[in-house]
Lab assay of single mutants.
Amino acid sequence: AEKTGIVNVSSSLNVREGASTSSKVIGSLSGNTKVTIVGEEGAFYKIEYKGSHGYVAKEYIKDIKDE
């Protein structure tokens, strides 16, 4: 049951290796980017990222929809 969301930041949002603010940053997404959410862990969504997965803070994702 995948969902999509939109990155809701003015600059960019860090994509992390794990569901923690201390996890390594593996990339970033600019505002209004559409993401595919494959799961959630605590305050983070697990998303599809560059052929693999990454984690982003839930508070910066809006317009969550079921695909």
Score class of each variant (00 low, 15 high):
Lys62Leu: 10
Gly5Val: 03
Val15Tyr: 02
Ala19Arg: 03
Val15Leu: 04
Lys34Ala: 10
Tyr60Asn: 08
Gly31Pro: 08
Val56Met: 03
Tyr55Pro: 00
Val15Cys: 02
Glu41Pro: 02
Lys62Trp: 08
Thr4Lys: 05
Val15Gln: 00
Lys24Met: 12
Asn32Gln: 07
Glu41His: 08
Lys3Thr: 08
Val56Gly: 01
Glu59Cys: 06
Gly54Cys: 03
Glu40Met: 10
Lys34Ile: 10
His53Gln: 11
Lys46Leu: 07
Phe44Leu: 03
Ile26Thr: 04
Lys50Asn: 13
His53Cys: 05
Ser11Glu: 11
Lys46His: 05
Asn14Val: 15
Lys34Gly: 04
Val9Asp: 07
Val7Ile: 13
Gly5Cys: 03
Val7Trp: 01
Thr21Pro: 06
Glu2Cys: 06
Gly5Gln: 03
Glu67Met: 07
His53Trp: 15
Ile61Ala: 01
Ser11Ile: 12
Ser10Ala: 11
Ser52Pro: 01
Glu40Thr: 11
Val38Arg: 07
Tyr49His: 08
Ser23Asp: 05
Lys34Asp: 04
Lys34Glu: 08
Val38Trp: 10
Ser10Pro: 12
Gly39Pro: 00
Gly31Ile: 05
Asp66Met: 14
Phe44Asn: 03
Gly27Glu: 02
Lys34Ser: 05
Glu48Ser: 14
Val35Thr: 02
Ser28Cys: 05
Ser23Thr: 12
Ile64Asp: 11
Gly51Met: 07
Glu2Tyr: 11
Gly31Ser: 08
Ile64Thr: 10
Val15Asp: 00
Lys50Pro: 03
Glu41Leu: 13
Phe44Pro: 00
Val35Met: 02
Val7Asp: 01
Lys62Ala: 14
Val35Leu: 04
Lys34Met: 11
Val25Thr: 13
Gly27Lys: 01
Ile47Val: 08
Glu59Asn: 07
Gly39Arg: 05
Thr36Phe: 14
Lys46Ala: 07
Lys3Asp: 03
Ile26Glu: 01
Asn14Phe: 08
Ser52Cys: 05
Gly42Tyr: 09
Tyr55Ile: 00
Tyr45Pro: 00
Asp63Phe: 10
Tyr49Thr: 02
Gly39Thr: 04
Gly27Arg: 02
Tyr60Phe: 10
Val25Tyr: 05
Asp66Leu: 13
Ser10Trp: 08
Arg16Lys: 14
Val25Ile: 11
Ile47Tyr: 00
Tyr49Phe: 11
Thr21Gly: 15
Val38Asp: 02
Val9Met: 09
Ile64Ser: 11
Asp66Gln: 11
Lys50Thr: 06
Lys24Ala: 11
Ala43Trp: 07
Ser30Trp: 09
Glu2Asn: 09
Ser12Arg: 12
His53Leu: 09
Leu13Gly: 03
Leu29His: 02
Ser20Pro: 02
Gly42Lys: 06
Ala57Val: 10
Val56Arg: 00
Gly27Met: 06
Val56Gln: 00
Gly51Trp: 09
Gly18Asn: 12
Val9Gln: 14
Glu17Leu: 06
Ser30Leu: 15
Asp66Thr: 13
Ala57Cys: 06
Ser10Val: 12
Asp66Asn: 15
Val15Phe: 02
Glu2Gln: 15
Ile61Ser: 01
Thr4Ala: 05
Lys46Asn: 03
Tyr49Lys: 00
Lys24Thr: 11
Val38Met: 10
Lys58Arg: 13
Val35Ser: 00
Glu17Trp: 06
Ser30Gly: 14
Gly5Pro: 02
Gly31Met: 10
Ile61Asp: 01
Leu13Val: 11
Val9Gly: 12
Thr4Glu: 07
Thr36Asp: 07
Lys65Tyr: 11
Ser20His: 11
Ser11Ala: 11
Ser23Leu: 03
Val7Asn: 02
Ala43Pro: 15
Ala57Lys: 13
Ser28Pro: 04
Ser11Tyr: 10
Val35Gln: 01
Tyr45Phe: 05
Lys24Gly: 12
Ala1Asn: 14
Tyr60His: 13
Tyr55Phe: 11
Gly39Ser: 10
Ser52Tyr: 10
Gly54Pro: 01
Ile6Val: 15
Gly27Cys: 03
Ala57Arg: 13
Asn32Ala: 12
Val9Pro: 09
Glu48Lys: 14
Thr36Pro: 04
His53Ala: 06
Ser23Asn: 04
Ala43Glu: 15
Ile61Asn: 01
Ile61Val: 11
Thr21Tyr: 14
Val25Lys: 07
Ile64Arg: 04
Val56Glu: 00
Glu17Ser: 14
Asp63Arg: 10
Lys24Val: 14
Ser28Glu: 15
Ser30Met: 09
Lys24Cys: 05
Ser28Lys: 14
Lys58Ala: 05
Gly27Phe: 13
Lys65Ser: 12
Glu41Ala: 06
Ser20Thr: 14
Asn8Thr: 11
Asn32Trp: 08
Lys34Val: 10
Ile26Tyr: 03
Lys3Gly: 06
Tyr45Cys: 03
Val56Asn: 00
Thr33His: 10
Ile26Leu: 15
Lys46Val: 10
Glu59Pro: 06
Gly5Asp: 02
